[in-house]
């Protein structure tokens, strides 16, 4: 179990240190190439999913953001973003508020059949 890094708020698969609740973020497919982990906890408050994605794009750089951002700089609507298993891509979804107990799943645009 890693302890939380106070400067970034990220910690490994375990729960972040201290009393603070931490949201769980799960990564899939290409995103794991840059995150090098399938899941981690984040203890610093991100008010909305848009804010969180911004933090993650900064943290993981172009290898991550290329799957999340559109070429115009917006957030892609074919990356699949789930909050507690619910697909939130509808209307002004980037403003969806987050709470510390949320579990967020982020998939780059992939499909099958």
């Amino acid at each position: 179990m890693n302890s939380s890094n106070p400067s970034t708020g990220f910690s490994g698969r375990g729960v972040a240190s201290g009393w603070q609740l931490a949201m769980k973020i799960k990564y899939f497919a290409y995103l794991r190439d840059t995150t090098h982990t399938a899941a981690e906890h984040y203890s610093q408050p991100a008010a909305t999913i848009g804010d969180l994605l911004e933090v993650l794009c900064q943290r993981y750089g172009p290898g991550f953001s290329r799957w999340i951002r559109t070429p115009e700089g917006g957030i892609s609507t074919i990356a699949i973003i789930l909050i507690n298993g619910k697909d939130i891509r509808d209307g002004a979804w980037v403003d969806t508020p987050l709470s510390p107990e949320d579990e967020i799943c982020i998939f780059p645009p992939v499909a099958g059949g």
């Binding site: 899939f28 699949i80 619910k86 780059p108 059949g113």
Partner: peptide
């Protein structure tokens, strides 16, 4: 996407939406 992971990439997606 399909070349890198095949269609089996769907396991996690379908599981994550229950």
């Amino acid at each position: 996407g399909l070349k890198a992971y095949g269609t089996d990439v769907l396991v996690n997606i379908l599981n994550s939406v229950g």
